[in-house]
Amino acid sequence: MYTVPLPRIGTDIAWRDAAKRLIGAGVSPDKVLWDFDNEMGELFATGTTLPPLTRRIKAPQSFVEMANWVVWHKDPQRFARLYALLWRLRHQPGLMQDRADAELAKLRQMEKGVHRCKHKMKAFVRFRDLRQKGERRSFAAWFEPTHHTVEPTAPFFARRFADMDWMIATPDVTAQFVDGNLSFHPGQPKPDLPEDAAEALWGTYFCNIFNPARLKVSAMTSEMPKKYWKNLPEAQHIQGLIAGAEAKVQQMRDKAPTLPPERAAKIKRQLRGDQAED
């Protein structure tokens, strides 16, 4: 029996390394326990060292890519499920193309979940200006991801916001980017971030880009589920916009057409004159 400890930071590399050793030594899935971030405690600590890496292990590229996503899922069974599929792949090399296989379908579904979480993190992190002195500006955000997505998503923020320092704090893992260097730290409680005046402007934009004549709340919530709202500054306006929409449309309807402003006639005359000269 092997118990494989997997750290919270660097989970992907640790899992892949262990999986390669275990597959290389022919250890079947029922002989492996995966222990994420010491969650099992001392009880299951067997202290067995993993077998050495003796040969190059081959796995389909599509499996490697899928595993790189699935390891970040919150399901405690993720590591065991991945290893079980890797075990089957030894004798069923075409398995990855079989979209009807139930085990693979489950993993694909988990992959999709992580994919979505990563996408939502890219979309919904909201930075606040820390207004610190210095050459580089500095920003910080609080975010609550569904899966362990901070580590795989942080490089996106590093590519995008390279000329500023930033921190994304989460209960799971905190990412920090200072002077061009990205680092990861244990998760933390929600920090006190300073108020940022830009949030009011962003709220103004959110309210005015909304078209009350096209109210479609379910389309909004399916893409921006309520669980994210508490960390989105613009979300505080949603209830009011929905409540006032019908009245606003009615107001437009009730208002009789107005006469054009005085300048309209003058501008029109000018425009016609210009065109005649052309």
């Binding site: 709340v217 916009l241 929905i242």
Partner: peptide, 27 residues
């Protein structure tokens, strides 16, 4: 991207909807 540290911003193929208004449209 702006990994060279001399600019701001990136584009990576697929766009991102940063918010949704109650009309269901992406912002």
């Amino acid at each position: 991207d702006s990994r060279d540290g001399k600019g701001l911003g990136s584009t990576e193929g697929s766009g991102i909807c940063h918010a949704y208004a109650p009309d269901g449209r992406c912002i």
